[in-house]
């Protein structure tokens, strides 16, 4: 039963890919519109072999890592502060909600204007887009910790800081990490969009190159595959952290 449920996603993927392959061949879809999976796989391997993919992967991973960690850390800080203080929450949370519903990506051109076309602007987009889901999920999780648990901590003589460290954060852990999972995939989106706005390397830049000057649709799809891999890896890293930290917290 267990093995079956693990195999099912793979089987579904194989089925979809086969259907795609067969459909492209039967209807003779031109390669520049929709390449067959086999063609994409070959182009993906080529791009890795000739170094193209790695050259564009490194900047994107750098932006996602720095921006994601920065945004995550800031979001955590803001979320914990607002979760602890009702008065800070009443003042700040309307802005947080407003900012959350503004499309952050639309700020991209402004950030490039201010920070230039280099790494800084892309890191800033990544950080901003990760900050809000982490801040809001942390705020809610830290605020809603069981009152009985907090009363227990007080009865044991815990300071405010000890209550945070020993009760609020561990209790809020899964809520915070749920926000981090969302943020991890958003960080990749942020990096790609940041790269569209200017720059010389990155998976987002490669998308533009493959579509425009190179007119290489299989490379475009190979790049999309690579971006998906980065996104899934970022998500998987959060899951891994979740596993490891569940054994470490105390």
């Amino acid at each position: 039963m267990r093995r079956l449920s693990q195999l099912t996603p793979l089987a579904v993927a194989a089925l979809l890919l086969s259907a795609w392959e067969v459909a492209v061949r039967i209807f003779a879809v031109p390669q520049f519109i929709l390449p067959a999976p086999s063609v994409i796989a070959v182009r993906f391997a080529e791009a890795w072999a000739d170094g193209t993919m790695l050259r564009h992967l490194v900047p994107t991973v750098t932006e996602v890592t720095i921006g994601g960690l920065l945004g995550g850390a800031l979001g955590l800080l803001i979320g914990v502060t607002l979760g602890l203080s009702g008065s800070a929450r009443r003042v700040v949370s309307p802005y947080l909600v407003a900012a959350q519903s503004t499309p952050i990506l639309a700020l991209g051109p402004v950030l490039v204007l201010w920070l230039g076309p280099g790494l800084a602007a892309k890191v800033a987009v990544c950080a901003l887009i990760t900050l809000f889901p982490v801040a809001i999920s942390t705020l809610v999780a830290v605020r809603d910790v069981d009152a009985g648990t907090l009363e227990l901590m007080r009865s044991l003589g815990a300071t405010r800081w000890q209550s945070l460290r020993y009760a609020r954060l561990p209790a809020a852990r899964s809520g915070i990490l749920a926000g981090a999972r969302v943020a991890a995939t958003l960080a990749v989106v942020g990096a790609i969009v940041g790269e569209w706005l200017g720059g010389t390397a990155g998976l987002g830049v490669l998308l533009n190159l493959a579509r425009g000057s190179l007119f290489d649709t299989p490379l475009l799809f190979a790049d999309l595959l690579q971006i998906a891999i980065v996104g899934v890896s970022a998500y998987a890293l959060v899951l891994l952290f979740e596993r490891v930290s569940s054994k470490k917290i105390a």
Binding site: A167, A171, I249
Partner: peptide
């Protein structure tokens, strides 16, 4: 003090 609910921390 022992409260009516045991209030053990589930992560410990």
């Amino acid at each position: 003090i022992v409260f009516q609910e045991s209030r053990l921390l589930p992560w410990r």
